[in-house]
Amino acid sequence: MKAVITVTGKDSVGIIADVAGVCAKYGANILDITQTVLSEYFAMIMLASIDGLTIGFSEFVDILSALGTGRGLDIHTMHEDIFNTMHHI
């Protein structure tokens, strides 16, 4: 199973490191990252395998969301199924 982590907000040093740190800490294996900065606006979509997650998915979602709030970023973590279902027949 995979989770899609989207991070948006004002750019600053260490965003990827922090998000990746949380993933590493709780056993989410990062598979792919797309990231850009558009006039100081940071946007990243990260795909991570959550099969080896050491905590519940809900908790993982909350931890990342709290990290975002602390840094003034919007971090959403969603199961990949919602994207596959909506956009592929």
Binding site: K2, T6, M78
Partner: peptide
């Protein structure tokens, strides 16, 4: 594979 545009559209 997840498409960036799809992800952004869903979140919007």
């Amino acid at each position: 594979m997840i498409n960036t545009q799809d992800v952004l559209e869903t979140i919007q």
